[in-house]
Design a protein around this nucleic acid. Structure first.
Length: 289
DNA sequence: CACTTGACCTGTCCGC
DNA sequence: TGCGGACAGGTCAAGT
């Protein structure tokens, strides 16, 4: 469930908390979660320092002084939580969280030389963390297929229209969820963006006017930026690198609001299925063209 | 080729 | 209270 705003919030937290620290130990419980062998970990992870933390769509890249990088995808239930020493104050994990980790969802523990730790927790084990040479990151099978990041400057309205039109027969919701078209949108922000643009999620892309598509682009960018300001959305188990929840869902217009009234027209928000996902829609404000 | 569906997992919630 | 089943949704492989 971590989508662009949640992953960006984690990235900013890690940038603040782990840059410059030296890795001393790594333990993992599952070869799917962390496929690298002991020799690679010894040679390229341990003893290296954190240079910076980047984001590509919903994926994170932790770049290391060894010229290797950790590519991390949290998929649905992944968390990255940093726990340092005496960090019990505002903006840091609560004492109860510190005492709770590791727990049974903990897949990888990275320990720094100062004995602070980064926990990679993932209840459903869909996520992964892998070590690869920094100069080969762009060749990675996931990274190389990604479309432009939803918040990148290069994704102009014109390019947004052009890229969406590659999928003119499929629904607009399936299309904006496709990470090869643009990177970063997931189920929450797809529903929110489509409501804000007055577009029914089932509308075939080919039926939308260019004006509607431009409106959608503007709304997606606005909503993603707003959510980053609010620390993202905590639907079930998302927390950031400091253990904090995000508050975007308090301001959501349709997501998880089925059975409640539309904030514009008072019509009841309904939950339907589009592109295989639970989809929240106001059928009065959002029409199929 | 364009597009859709099911598998991967585990925890939670709902109805009986 | 316990239990089976539906559901949650990011990505990829397999299917239509």
């Amino acid at each position: 469930m971590p989508e662009l705003p949640e992953v960006e919030t984690i990235r900013r937290g890690l940038e603040e908390l782990i840059v410059g620290r030296e890795l001393q130990a790594a333990e993992d419980d599952n070869p799917h979660t962390f496929p690298n062998d002991k020799q690679q970990v010894q040679n390229f992870l341990l003893g290296s320092r954190i240079i910076n933390v980047e984001r590509r769509g919903k994926a994170l890249l932790i770049n290391l002084s060894s010229n290797y990088s950790l590519l991390i995808h949290l998929r649905m239930t992944g968390q990255l939580v940093y726990i340092g020493l005496q960090r019990f104050g505002a903006g840091h994990p609560t004492k109860s969280l510190i005492n709770a980790l590791p727990d049974k969802s903990t897949r990888v523990i990275l320990t720094f030389k100062d004995s602070s730790k980064l926990f990679f927790n993932d209840q459903r084990k869909f996520g992964y963390m892998k070590l690869l040479a920094t100069n080969l990151v762009e060749e990675d099978s996931f990274i190389k297929k990604l479309g432009p990041d939803a918040l990148s400057k290069e994704l102009t309205a014109g390019i947004f229209i052009k890229r969406l039109k590659k999928r003119k027969g499929s629904s607009i919701k399936a299309t904006i969820l496709d990470q090869t078209i643009l990177a970063g949108i997931g189920n929450i922000y797809a529903d929110e963006g489509l409501w804000a643009s007055g577009i029914h999620p089932s509308t075939p892309v080919g039926h939308l006017t260019d004006d509607k598509v431009v409106k959608l682009h503007v709304e997606i960018v606005r909503i993603l930026k707003l959510s980053i300001k609010l620390g993202g959305s905590t639907d079930r188990n998302y927390i950031d690198a400091g253990g904090r929840e995000g508050s975007y869902l308090e301001f959501a217009k349709v997501f998880r609001r089925e059975g409640q009234q539309c904030l514009v027209c008072d019509n009841e928000i309904v939950k339907i299925r589009v592109a295989g996902r639970g989809t929240h829609v106001c059928t009065r404000c959002q029409t199929i063209e």
